[in-house]
Simulated assay, not measured.
Amino acid sequence: MTVGTVRPGGRTARVRAAVLQAAGDALVEDGFDKLDLAEIARRAGVGKTTVYRRWGTVAALVADMLDDMADQSTPRADTGSLIGDLRANAHLVLRTLTDPRQGALFRAIIVAAACDARTATALRTFYAVRIAEWAPCVEQAISRGELPAGTDATEVIRAVSAPLYYRLMISQEPLDPTAADRAAEAAAAAARAGAYAQTG
């Protein structure tokens, strides 16, 4: 049975939840390079064979962890205005990155992606899905006349979260509501000015 077809509340779903929880704990505590499927199985209280058969590699397990995080993410807001939607997006990113567990997980996964190709692919896929979910708020703003025609919705959404991830991973400056609002407002202002309008 593949991920996404498991029966909610069934044994397969419970095993997956336990293994992903254990993998996340191990990733936060020890880092990607020390992840071990046998140790994760022990932490989760499931058989090693089950873990090896279902995931096979640490990278595949991390990819499934990202899938699970995407599934649990809050749906896109629809406030009726561009700035309202972008602020909602920024505050969702803020809540995720400042959550004690989720923030630590994202740090560890981003570090892992720098040295593991499969994890990097899984991380890109995760963000592509999240950006695609939020892109319609920009497209709606174009249709309302708030933004120039041809504005690249993907780039606008990226511009909202990029400053927050910079604070998380590089500058380690405070991540707070003011930073989230500023990121949303800067992205909206740049979009209105045509900075993300596609040409040619």
Rank of each mutant, 00 (worst) to 15 (best):
Thr151Val: 06
Gly45Ala: 06
Gly84Ala: 11
Ala187His: 12
Arg76Gln: 04
Ala188Trp: 02
Asp85Tyr: 00
Gly47Cys: 08
Thr125Phe: 01
Leu35Lys: 07
His91Phe: 10
Val129Thr: 09
Ala38Tyr: 06
Ser73Trp: 00
Ser171Ile: 08
Ala179Leu: 02
Leu175Met: 13
Ser143His: 08
Cys115Ile: 11
Gly145Tyr: 05
Val15Trp: 06
Gly56Thr: 09
Gln21Ala: 07
Asp71Tyr: 02
Thr151Gly: 02
Asp25Arg: 03
Val58Lys: 00
Thr49Asn: 14
Gly150Glu: 13
Gly80Val: 09
Arg124Lys: 13
Arg124Gln: 15
Val3Lys: 06
Arg16His: 08
Glu139Ile: 04
Arg124Thr: 14
Tyr166Met: 14
Val3Asn: 11
Ile40Ala: 07
Ala44Gly: 06
Trp134Leu: 12
Thr12Glu: 00
Pro75Tyr: 04
Asp152Ile: 04
Asp71Cys: 05
Val62Arg: 10
Glu155Thr: 09
Leu27Thr: 09
Arg53Ala: 15
Arg182Ala: 11
Ala41Phe: 01
Ser143Val: 13
Gly194Tyr: 04
Tyr52Trp: 09
Ala153Glu: 02
Phe32Thr: 08
Thr178Ile: 14
Ala187Trp: 05
Glu155Met: 13
Thr121Glu: 15
Glu146Phe: 05
Arg182Tyr: 02
Val3Trp: 08
Ala141Thr: 02
Gly9His: 04
Ala70Val: 13
Ile157Asp: 02
Thr12Val: 00
Gln198Asp: 04
Thr98Gly: 05
Thr12Asn: 00
Ala112Lys: 05
Ile109Asn: 10
Ala180Trp: 02
Thr98Pro: 06
Leu35Gly: 05
Met1His: 04
Tyr52Lys: 03
Thr125Pro: 02
Asp85Thr: 09
Arg158Tyr: 13
Cys115Gln: 14
Arg158Asn: 12
Ala77Trp: 03
Trp134His: 15
Gly10Pro: 07
Gln72Ser: 12
Arg43Asp: 00
Asp33Thr: 09
Ala189Gln: 01
Met1Gln: 12
Gln72Ile: 04
Thr50Ala: 05
Ala180Lys: 01
Pro8Gln: 09
Arg42Pro: 00
Val111Arg: 15
Ala122Asn: 04
Ala132Pro: 10
Met169Leu: 13
Gln198Thr: 15
Thr119Arg: 11
Glu139Asp: 15
Ser161Asn: 01
Tyr165His: 14
Lys48Tyr: 07
Val19Phe: 01
Pro148Asn: 10
Ala195Asp: 15
Asp176Thr: 12
Met1Val: 11
Pro163Met: 05
Arg95Lys: 11
Ala23Asn: 01
Tyr52Leu: 13
Ala188Ser: 10
Thr178Ser: 11
Thr178Tyr: 03
Ala180Thr: 08
Ala18Pro: 08
Leu175Lys: 11
Phe32Trp: 14
Asp67Thr: 05
Asp71Asn: 10
Ala113Met: 02
Val58Cys: 02
Gly9Leu: 10
Arg43Phe: 00
Leu123Val: 04
Asp64Cys: 01
Val6Asp: 02
Gln172Pro: 01
Asp67Gln: 01
Arg182Asn: 09
Ala190Met: 09
Ala193Lys: 15
Arg54Glu: 08
Ile170Asp: 15
Ala108Cys: 13
Asp181Phe: 03
Trp55Arg: 06
Gln72Gly: 15
Leu66Ile: 01
Thr79His: 12
Lys48Thr: 12
